[in-house]
């Protein structure tokens, strides 16, 4: 029975894909990515690992449309990203970002920081607020909504950043060492929370990390070195496992 279902299931949808992507700086003098092929499918969690400077952050930026490749193409939901065009809609509705540093806006409260993407997208106030309450509830910071972010702990700040990233219900969460600046136990807690959220919301996660322990918890682990993907475990089998 189960094998019947697996065979009949639709092939996993490609959510974000890099095809032979090159990135260099200063007229090619600095070559950062050298023909990267990468794909993440719906609902998948992918860890990007590799030594410092191998190009993880660069790849994340390209996948998110924050930067354009020197050569090669990025596809989001099978639509090719064109430089400059529709990046705004992509950022507003498809992508969520979490960085090592929380990058919250000082002077605004926790609540207001969460609402920023809704303000940008012009989401109706009530809907935005309901979403913000839902997320802060889930991340356990709902009792601190009115706090200015200067008064929050590191963990609370990163939870806030996570809520902000998920405000507009993105289909992809790009995380660049999201727990890199937190202590061991807070780091674990936040990562569990992150995994739980992307799973319930059916979000595809691509996360750059140095933490092997965290990487092992993802469906896939992609190893990079010198701007190339050197080892990627076949996603299909794992996704069906992971999702079921």
């Amino acid at each position: 029975m189960s094998s019947f279902f697996v065979e009949e299931a639709e092939p996993a949808r490609s959510v974000v894909r890099a095809v032979d992507v090159w990135k260099s700086y200063e007229q090619g003098a600095i070559r950062v990515l050298n023909g990267v092929n990468f794909e993440a499918v719906a609902g998948q969690t992918v860890a990007l690992c590799g030594p410092s400077g191998c190009g993880k952050s660069t790849l994340l930026h390209l996948l998110g449309g924050l930067d354009t490749p020197t050569a090669g193409s990025i596809y989001v939901h099978d639509v090719k990203l064109e430089p400059g065009r529709s990046t705004l809609q992509l950022l507003r509705h498809q992508m969520g970002f979490v960085f090592q540093l929380h990058h919250l806006i000082p002077g605004l409260t926790l609540e207001e920081n969460c609402m920023i993407p809704a303000v940008a997208a012009g989401t109706a106030r009530d809907a935005a607020r309901a979403r913000m309450l839902q997320l802060t509830e889930r991340t356990g910071i709902v009792h601190r909504l009115k706090q200015p972010i200067q008064k929050l702990s590191g963990g609370e700040r990163q939870r806030t950043a996570l809520c902000r990233a998920l405000m507009n219900r993105p289909s992809i969460l790009l995380a660049d060492e999201p727990t890199g600046s937190l202590d061991e136990s807070t780091s674990r807690q936040i990562f569990e929370l992150l995994l739980e959220l992307v799973e319930t919301e059916q979000i595809t996660l691509v996360m750059a990390t140095h933490d092997r322990g965290l990487a092992e918890r993802c469906h896939r682990l992609v190893e990079m070195r010198d701007g190339r993907v050197v080892d990627a475990r076949a996603p299909e089998a794992e996704v069906t496992q992971g999702v079921q």
Binding site: G64, L66, L88, R92, H103, I116, A120, A121
Partner: peptide
């Protein structure tokens, strides 16, 4: 930059 990443036009 952060506002931009969060969808500010």
């Amino acid at each position: 930059a952060i506002l931009r990443v969060n969808g500010f036009s």
